[in-house]
Design a protein around this nucleic acid. Structure first.
Lengths: 217, 217
DNA sequence: ACTGAGCTGTGAATATAATAACAGCCAACA
DNA sequence: TGTTGGCTGTTATTATATTCACAGCTCAGT
C-alpha cells in the first residue's frame, strides 16, 4: 500500500494507523457514554477486532498514555485522538451537489459530533440555487470562488454529477481547499497540496462480491 | 494491514489488489466508451495514479492478458475483471433503512451498471412499511426471515439506525447473507462466514483533517 | 515488605506490499 | 532478413506493516 507516513515526534504515523484511530475513538466514545473510565488494550482491541499489540503500537505512535496497571484512560484518549485528527474544533465543510446523496449528507445529524459542519452547498441546478436546504443556503457552482472564502472551508465533499468534475477539482484546489472527499465514481486528477479521498460504494460491493464468490472464508 | 488473501490459480489475490481492480475496471469502462481498444500499462497506470509495475503485477495475479506489443485489450479486460469480481451477472442486494441515506441509495441509478440491484427495502418505521419506494416494496425489519429468501439476496446494505444493529447483523448472518456493507458508524460483531465492510464518512473526513493539520505534503 | 499476576511499551522477528530492473518477445522498419 | 525500440511478465530487492515476546513496572493481597 502506498503509505504516505507523517512525521510526528520522531515517530511516523501511517495512514493506516490514522484510520484505525478513528475507529478507536468511535468505540472509546461509546465506552465513555457507558461510564467506563479505563480500558485495557486487549479489551479495546477485541471491541475493534484488532490485535492488542497493534492497538498498543498505534497508540504509542503519539506518546504513551496507558496507565500501566489501570489501562488507558478513556476520556483523555478521546481528547488526544481528537486533537491529533484535528477534530477537537469544528471544521467547516463545503458540499457540492444537492441531489439525493447530497441532501442525505445535509440532513445527517452525525457530522457535528465528529467535528465537521456542512456550512455551504453548491449546485448547478437553477431550481436549487438560491434555496435554503436544511438551514444552508445553496449557491451556484460558478460562485465558488466568491463564496467559499466567506466560510473558511478546508474540506470539500463532492456528491455532484460527473460532468465537470475535473474542472471543479482544479478550481477547488485554486480556491484553497486542502482535502476533497469524492463520492463520484470517476477518477480525480492529482492535485498538488490537496489530498483526495474516494468513496466508491459500488467498489465496496464489488469487494464483498469477490469475497463471496471466491469463498474467502 | 490485515491481509486476508485469497487463493486463486496458485496465486494469491490480496484485497488491496481487488480494490485496485475496481478502479482499473472503472477507468477501463471509460476508455471503452471512448472507443479505445488497447492500452499500455503505463498509460492506464497514470490514469489511476498507480505505478505501472504494480498495475502489471495486479493484472498478472489472475493470468496474463496483455498483448506484448499492443498492450492490454480494454474490453476483454473489463469482462475478465467483472467475472473475477462476480459482477458479470446482476446481484440482488437488500437495503436496511429508508431514511435519508437509504433513499439516496435507492434512487441512485449507478448500481445496476456495476452489477448490483437493490431488490428489497426494510425499515422499522410504520409510515414507510408497506409503501413502495422507487419501485421497491418496503417491508418491516421483522419480516426479514420470511422476505429475504424470496429475493435471493447475498449482500445487505445497512443504512438504518444504530439501535438494534447488532441483533440485525446476527439475524442477517442466520438468514444466509454473505456480505454486509455497513454505513452505520457503529462496530459490528464478527460474524462467521459473513464479510463486513464499513463505510464511515466521518472517518474519511477525519483522515483528510489529519493530513491537513499535519501538513502531510 | 514481599510476592505474583497482569499490564504497557517496545526491540526483534516475521509477513506482506511496492518498486525496480530485466529477460524475452513482438512488430516495424530499414 | 537483421536490427532496434518498446512492451509484458516476473524475479530480485527494498520498504512497510504486523505480530511476537518480554523487560520493567504497579498494585493487590498477604
Amino acid at each position: 500500500m502506498k503509505s504516505k507516513a507523517i512525521e510526528n515526534t520522531g515517530k511516523r504515523i501511517s495512514l493506516q494507523t490514522v484510520e484505525r484511530l478513528s475507529v478507536y475513538r468511535k468505540v472509546l466514545e461509546e465506552l465513555h457514554r457507558n461510564g467506563v473510565e479505563y480500558v485495557y488494550s486487549h479489551q479495546l482491541a477485541e471491541l475493534v477486532h484488532v490485535g492488542s499489540a497493534q492497538l498498543r503500537r498505534d497508540l504509542a505512535t503519539f506518546g504513551s498514555f496507558g496507565n500501566i496497571s489501570k489501562g488507558y484512560p478513556v476520556h483523555a484518549m478521546i481528547l488526544t485522538i481528537s486533537k491529533l485528527l484535528g477534530t477537537d474544533t469544528l471544521q467547516n465543510v463545503a458540499l457540492f451537489g444537492a441531489g439525493n446523496l447530497g441532501r442525505a449528507l445535509l440532513y445527517y445529524r452525525g457530522f457535528e459530533e465528529r467535528g465537521f459542519r456542512i456550512a455551504v452547498v453548491f449546485d448547478v441546478d437553477p431550481d436549487k440555487v438560491g434555496r435554503v436546504l436544511a438551514g444552508r443556503r445553496c449557491y451556484h457552482e460558478q460562485e465558488l470562488e466568491q463564496v467559499l472564502p466567506e466560510f473558511n472551508v478546508t474540506i470539500a465533499v463532492l456528491a455532484c454529477g460527473p460532468e465537470s468534475l475535473i474542472g471543479l477539482a482544479h478550481r477547488l484546489s485554486k480556491a484553497g481547499v486542502r482535502g476533497i472527499l469524492n463520492f463520484v465514481p470517476k477518477q480525480l486528477p492529482e492535485l498538488k497540496g490537496v489530498y483526495t479521498e474516494n468513496i466508491d460504494i459500488s467498489a465496496k460491493m464489488e469487494k464483498l462480491s469477490f469475497l463471496y464468490h471466491f469463498g474467502g472464508f
